[in-house]
Nucleic acid binder design. Structure first.
Lengths: 347, 347
DNA sequence: GCGCCGCGCTTAATCGTTTAATCAATTGCA
DNA sequence: TGCAATTGATTAAACGATTAAGCGCGGCGC
């Protein structure tokens, strides 16, 4: 009949049960002193009415929004789905919502995005920074997920160790000459991965590194990488620093009639969505994004709970590096002892 | 010195200027009656203090959170980056934040995710539904982005027309036998795309459809699709219903020594991130996600603004179908008139 | 028997904003 | 000049939750 605003609130429950709002609040939160019997009655009635606390009211009173921000600055990052999923899951388990702010690749847009989140009153935020950028002090706790070598990094996959896993794997298959294929040499993540590979090489092995972006600046976007020539020069393994580059290498090699893994091996990083389904399926290294997200979120939540004064700080976590896991699939195999031509070590 | 809570609020500005909070509020929102001179003074002072309105206070009073929810139920959907980016951009331009809720592929989790969003008080939400699911009435406006054939769909790319573009393109290249490669025959999107392709075939052309999920149920995940055999049977074009399947087809064909596009053509859908960089780069059809997002968001915003009683309804938009754009790259070429063996039309 | 303690609940203040209602002062018009 | 209308501001209530403080009452100790 005479309907008020939709959705029951504390006072509705209170009057309906003949108690005060404070008691209802205490009963539901379990904080004050309420008799067990009354707690039961109140909870039952609240559930029956389908009561959902108003985040707005709560936020206004407590000064906490129970929302975290997620800043993903790298445009159309193929890791986006996994990261977002993992962060959302971890945050949601901790009782937080996740507000996204994608700055379309732009660096100024990154700070803008961060400001938008702050204005919306997020309690903290997770930032996966655009390469070689520093997070300007936002006025709330910030967790950075990048890589161990980044100053201020909170938690990340152990990209270096991942690289070593790749190197060890290729070494065990008898590969001697490895071409590392990266995109951008300013990326801390890619540098750590490449460094790990180099550090993991056995005596008698050597590597060379090809940066795609540098090549494309000369030759144009989407250009050939010239991998067939590299194969003829004696490289038997192509270790890409991301599955995207691995895919690019794989298809170029195949197009040139070089068989993977019979002639050469190809490996990647990240275990992206296509890795298991291409032919041959990609040997890669997977990051444990769920664990990373959980660490990042709990670091944030801890800081939020302890600090009354919402200062802007980079939070730190107990565990900074989460091990990566080697996934061996079809694209890596024994080194072919007889390369097509014998120009070995000519370059 | 004696510091209060951080961040200036209306009352701080008010006392500092010797006026009432209401006047400040009116001056900033431009709603009530305030003299022009005072409006100027207040705005200047607010800007100087770096005033940001409290979303919590405003939300509590107005009943609007200025936040939209985004539900992406398909696990690790490779379109996620584009969708999220586009929605976030459109929402942000309209003054809304975007709260994400990924239900990890689960259907019950989809309703759970929707509930989480509702509990957080979103004003509306954009749902990209898991295949063949209906959105149970959430208690706020909902925009559905799927495909035109889905009941309740708000706006989507014109997948059917996209399919016709592909068919026309392949027809113009002289292809007669086309193998359509889809993942799941229950997906409305994939069905519309396949339907469009079939509808676009010229007289003398024929198509067959291969559903990967059905095949994998028998043969196991990650199995071969047997495309080489299909090629021998006379199929010269492989039209995948997503770039992911196109990539799978491309690499399998290459692995079997079949050259693309010299021997056969491969096309995809969606222009995913790897499409331009694989070799050969993928001919595909791109959806105008920015336009779609803008339509969906403005439909939501309209409904939010007109309806005082936040009812749960599927909103409708003026434009329901947004045209897709054919991107011709290297993976499609003239039909090879002489297939390797001549078992044509044997199957 | 008196006072104190603690339990169980209520009262009331508060967070920051919006907005209807009100009010004083000035202007307009006859 | 007197009354109404308009302008430019204030006052106060409200949104829904949390939480410190208060208060009556029964039990316990001495």
């Amino acid at each position: 009949m005479a309907s008020q605003r939709p959705g029951p609130n504390l006072s509705r429950i209170a009057t309906s049960l003949g108690v005060s709002v404070a008691t209802v609040s205490n009963a539901l939160s379990g904080k004050g002193r309420v008799s067990d019997a009354l707690i039961e009655r109140i909870r039952a009635h609240a559930a029956e009415l389908g009561y959902v606390p108003s985040q707005a009211g709560r936020a206004l009173r407590t000064g906490r929004s129970a929302v975290l921000g997620l800043v993903l600055p790298d445009i159309a990052n193929p890791l986006f789905p996994k990261i977002a999923q993992a962060i959302e899951y971890a945050a949601s388990a901790a009782g937080y919502g996740v507000l996204i702010a994608d700055s379309r690749g732009d660096i100024t847009a990154q700070t803008e995005a961060i400001n938008r989140l702050v204005e919306r009153g997020v309690d903290g935020m997770v930032v996966v920074p655009r390469r070689a950028t520093r997070i300007s002090g936002a006025s709330c706790p910030v967790a950075v997920i990048d890589t161990a070598s980044t100053p201020g990094n909170t938690v990340a996959a152990d990209h270096w160790q991942g690289g070593k896993e790749i190197a060890a794997h290729l070494a065990s298959l008898g590969h001697k000459q490895i071409l590392i294929i990266g995109n951008n040499h300013e990326s801390n993540v890619q540098n750590d991965r490449a460094g790990g590979i180099r550090a993991g090489l056995q005596p008698g092995m050597r590597s060379e590194t090809l940066w795609i972006e540098r090549l494309e600046n000369e030759t144009g976007a989407g250009c050939r990488l010239g991998l067939a020539k590299k194969a003829r020069q004696g490289f038997t393994a192509f270790a890409a620093l991301s599955d995207l580059q691995a895919l690019r290498a794989l298809t170029e090699l195949q197009q040139d009639g070089i068989s993977v893994p019979a002639d050469v091996s190809v490996t990647g990083f990240d275990d992206l969505i296509w890795s298991p389904v291409v032919t041959p399926s990609l040997t890669t290294v997977r990051m444990d994004m769920d664990t990373i997200a959980e660490i990042a979120v709990s670091a944030l939540v801890n800081r939020i709970n302890e600090s009354g004064t919402r200062e802007g700080v980079l939070v730190t976590a107990h565990t900074e590096r989460v091990p990566m896991q080697l996934i061996i699939r079809q694209s890596s195999g024994l080194a072919n002892p007889a390369p097509k031509t014998s120009e070995m070590e000519s370059l």
